[in-house]
Design a protein around this nucleic acid. Structure first.
Lengths: 348, 348
DNA sequence: ATCGCTGTTGGCAGCGCTGCCAAAATGGGT
DNA sequence: ACCCATTTTGGCAGCGCTGCCAACAGCGAT
């Protein structure tokens, strides 16, 4: 209507406006309904400050009656303190990260924190963009994988003033909090184990190491220990793309085609190792007699194969739990090394 | 200090207060620095409304200079429209859900939405509590698994006015949007396939069906089709707890101990089926000659085993993508059946 | 020079809640 | 009945941004 009619219809606009916002019950309405002030409702709902039992009952009743749902957006703005925790993770395909999220979200939920996440695909530039986007939500903490971040990311995070947790690695300088284990040590121990078992013609099958820097650190540690013995790395096969069972299978096939006399192969992780294991099963290569296989991560599936996979079990869920715990308790900056466990298994 | 000293130190308190809020740059400060009004900065930053190129450059420069990070909490409150999408999922251990999240988060990120999540452990009561907590963040949409929710959950979601997406199932009445495939049909097709292949002594190994209602629907569909032929279900083994490779192995072991003459086994999903497969490998049971194995999900690992797993491939990532797409485009209520694909494989 | 149009711009009232403060109620003592 | 120390309570100014609206500038057309 270009020309609203004068007179009794003037209230029409008001009605329209009232319908605009999805009949959302506000704290003020609850206060009215309960016959108390807004701050009293707020205190009761957060169980913070003091109020009489009688008042509490009336407030609760009004809340139930109206179906009031507090607005955390408004609450966060008003208190300038957030209970959001932002996860910026490389991937959701690699089970490592769901595991970390699982551990963390359990702890966060108990403490009434809320997890938000985004996925970088192992791309540091994307990580920077996503971290920036996350900071706009003013989280209490940002949880990242590892230490390798762009300069921009680091600067932004530092300036944000929120807690920073670098997870799944402790080989480096933490920005604030760090929780995980040493990938370098994992690589070294794997090599030491294979050497101790007597293997001397050792190869490696891995996925894109530029992106997954933690896998890179393991490989570096592995080579470092091999290098000090009489059995330097005999050959390696690096596949482009993410780790996967199929890539592990393919990688081992190629590696053996080139260097058939290997007696052991180290894989960048259990997914890859399982692929190698299946390749051997399919080709009738006896394990570990003809070829030993060693992985990394300690996935459950590796314990159920006919021969349990020799690998290193990492505390992924615990990493998430501890990371979350440190954040909710507002712990001082520190590095928590959760260690790892070498599983002898039966494939090496 | 119980008694603050008078005189020149009076400003101490003021300084303390200034440090309280982590030197956060606000839009107003950017406006001052750029010599423009707040609303102009807001328009430039959101690329919304009109402004001159000159103004834009000055604003951008000020933003960079001050390292301004917009506050989405404030923005969301002010605009009363949210770009948060809440995922309330049963589990993160079951790869299904990370896959869905992966598909969804890619689409959401492109559209500048932010994913938040929490995990119910397949517990409807917990789902209700978590859904309530999520609604407090006033999300644009709540994404859930399946149709089985408590009355309270349904009532709350309906009242919230935000979009509701029920994922991974289409066998039921959708509250608003639904994206997935028919679990009942998957069960029926699996049974039909085994019957067509000539198997007649068919067993089932599954995990807790009360919690995972979608697995229950598959099993029901499976039995339904078997029942119409001359080969009703010969035996079943249900394991308490979540699905896992180890449970699949154990389940098959128990089932065969009780009913050794089975010629095929249907598993509640691929994790379980792989356990069964490994059990056969370990015991020298030939597949599919002595025993056929059929799974559900179409995990990548099932394609890399010496014999590719016979299974049904489900569009998990696509489910997440489509769900997110429907939300960001504000599509009308509808049910999207993405279907599934039967993989013949070599284990049945 | 004046008019009217389109394109820009700033001011300001909220969004729904929390934190602070002052006011009011309560509950013994005396 | 009166005083003081506690509770308990309500008012209200923001938190940082957006949306609305009015004001204004630029620029051909008259």
């Amino acid at each position: 209507m270009a020309m609203p009619l004068p007179g009794p219809r003037a209230w029409i606009e008001v009605v329209t406006m009232e319908f605009k916002h999805q009949a959302t019950v506000t704290l003020a309405e609850v206060a009215d309904a309960a016959g108390v002030g807004e701050s009293t409702v707020s205190r009761v709902l957060r169980n913070h400050g003091s109020f009489s039992g009688k008042t509490r009952d009336r407030v609760i009743a009004a809340v139930e009656r109206l179906g009031y749902v507090p607005n955390r957006i408004a609450g966060t703005l008003a208190s300038t303190t957030s209970r959001l925790v932002a996860f910026v993770i490389p991937s959701l395909s690699n089970i490592v990260f769901p595991d970390v999220l699982r551990g963390a979200s359990a702890v966060l939920e108990e403490n009434r924190y809320q997890a938000v996440f985004s996925v970088t695909d192992y791309d540091p530039t994307k990580e920077e963009a996503l971290a920036a986007a996350m900071l706009a939500w003013r989280p209490a903490a940002v949880m990242l994988a590892g230490y390798e971040h762009t300069e921009g990311t680091v600067k932004m995070l530092r300036a944000s003033g929120c807690r920073i947790v670098e997870m799944l690695d402790v080989d480096g300088d933490a920005l604030d909090l760090a929780v995980g284990f040493s990938n370098g040590a994992a690589g070294r121990e794997s090599a030491a184990f294979l050497l101790k078992r007597g293997y001397r013609r050792i190869g490696y099958v891995g996925h894109d190491l530029n992106r997954d820097t933690r896998a890179g650190k393991r490989f570096a540690g592995f080579c470092q220990t091999l290098g000090t013995g009489d059995a330097p790395l005999a050959d390696r096969e690096i596949l482009a793309g993410a780790s996967s069972v199929e890539n592990g299978r393919l990688g081992l096939e190629r590696l053996l085609a080139r260097t058939p006399d290997l007696d052991a192969v180290y894989f960048s992780n259990d997914d890859m190792a399982l692929g190698g294991y299946f390749h051997c099963l399919a080709r009738g290569i006896s394990i570990p007699g003809q070829l030993a296989i060693f992985g990394y991560n300690g996935l459950d599936i590796g314990r159920a194969t006919p021969q349990p996979l020799s690998t290193i079990r990492t505390p992924r869920v615990a990493t998430g739990q501890v990371a979350a715990q440190l954040v909710v308790t507002n712990a001082p900056p520190q590095v928590v090394d959760l260690g790892f466990e070498l599983i002898e298994g039966a494939t090496a």
